[in-house]
Amino acid sequence: MQAFDYASARTVGEAVSLLTQHGERARILAGGTDIIVQVREGRRSVDLLLDIKEIPEVNQLSYDPINGLRIGAAVPCYKIYEHAEIAAVYPGLIDAVSLIGGIQIQGRATLGGNLCNASPAADTIPALIVLRATCLIAGPQGTREVPVEQFCTGPGRTILQRGEFLLSFRLPPPQKHSGARYLRFIPRNEMDIAVVGVGASVVLNEAHTRFVSARIALGAVAPTPLLAVEAGEILAGKEISEENIQRAAEAAQAIARPISDMRGTAEYRRHLVGILTRRTLQGAIQRAKKEA
């Protein structure tokens, strides 16, 4: 592996200053499950790996019904799904964090790393988007907050500017009569990268007969994960029916811009978007009804 320096920042200010100094030659080290492999395999060249795990803000994990959920960028997957209250309130997020890699990966891989690595197929990103998660970003000018759907700009590319890094996520508390689901398609049971991933969240009326609103997000069918705006808006105010769910699925398919690669053809992926949109919507509806 190429030589590089290692530093462990203890404060946000220290991290911002090192990142400003080194620019693109520095990368953040949190769980290391992507960056260490990328550097080792020569896919990325760095002068400095900056460990942020000693910074208190990136280790936060707290939920309350008024402020919702705050997850530090360096919190590993297992801490999220082992947190009983969070697992009960945000099952749509748990769907995603519990299927990334095996146990060994979940012990290290972080939510922030999954977003910052900006893979089009990242499992947690569609789940975060439909839960209206926002990113708190620290930088030389202070902090700024952006919705997760605006964070990735291309494969491996993000909106982060020189000196900036992801601090934490904020997820609003779930509304009443709401539910969310994330599903991916892989040709085996475990340990694979999504051919297509779809997240859906719904808010239902009190009688559970209509959609108040819905959000649908797609993974692995475009250079970045996508919020399928129209597919969600089609459902607002509509009756819960197979026909309406099918219309949303078709609207989601319409914005998919998949490529053909070793995991599947573009045509196959577009087909899967339809199937998974229907299934995640049905799963989200089921959860919303139970939650009541």
């Binding site: 499950t33 260490i36 060994q104 990966i105 012990g107 290290r108």
Partner: peptide, 13 residues
């Protein structure tokens, strides 16, 4: 207490 792949941890960590 957490199972990890030691190839994905730096010695300095």
């Amino acid at each position: 207490g957490v199972l990890v792949n030691s190839c994905l941890v730096l010695g300095v960590e």
